[in-house]
Amino acid sequence: MEDAAILELYWARNDAALEETRKKYGGLCAAVASNLLPNREDAEECVADTYLAAWNTIPPERPRLLRAYLAALTRNIALDRLKRLRAQKRGGGEAELIFEELSELLPGGDTPAAELERRELLRDIESFLDKQNSRARHIFLRRYYYADSVSAIARGLKMRENTVSAQLMRTRGRLREYLLERGYDI
């Protein structure tokens, strides 16, 4: 079913919207959740929460891109859950590796940047990604947005895992340079 038709079901408060969402994007939500969360039960609950969040937010929301919207919902819910698990020392898995990789790109020491700075940083990162070739951008987003494992990315692109890791390292290096040039203190 087309996304527009699924959104119409949400707006009509027809619960078939959830089944259609599950059919079309269940795999995506499950993948994002399990990439971030260390065990299966947490991932399953996260996906169920995602459907509930979609039901509760559409309407009033009418996402332009349903896939990205659901991915963002899943990601946020999984991240919240992961933070709680980490507080109980129950984190781990792929997410920890990803955080470690991203730690080399951290402006402003340990203090969360002010909201304005965050917005600016986000804009700069987006502008950087826009300038990358489709391969580098695809790999970066799959790793650092969808939290995909290096091996899953390599499988999808029929590349060697070491090549994917090297590509990620190069993109992070370029991003670091890009941010340094813009005056960020990394």
Binding site: A72, R75, N76, L79, K83, R86, A95, I98, F99, E100, E101, L102, S103, L105, L106, P107, G108, G109, D110, T111, P112, A113, R118, L121, L122, I125, E126, L129, L141, Y144, Y145, A147
Partner: peptide
Amino acid sequence: MTGIAMFELLGELS
């Protein structure tokens, strides 16, 4: 900012 905070920030990409 920590690695997780950067990851969180990337969640706000358009």
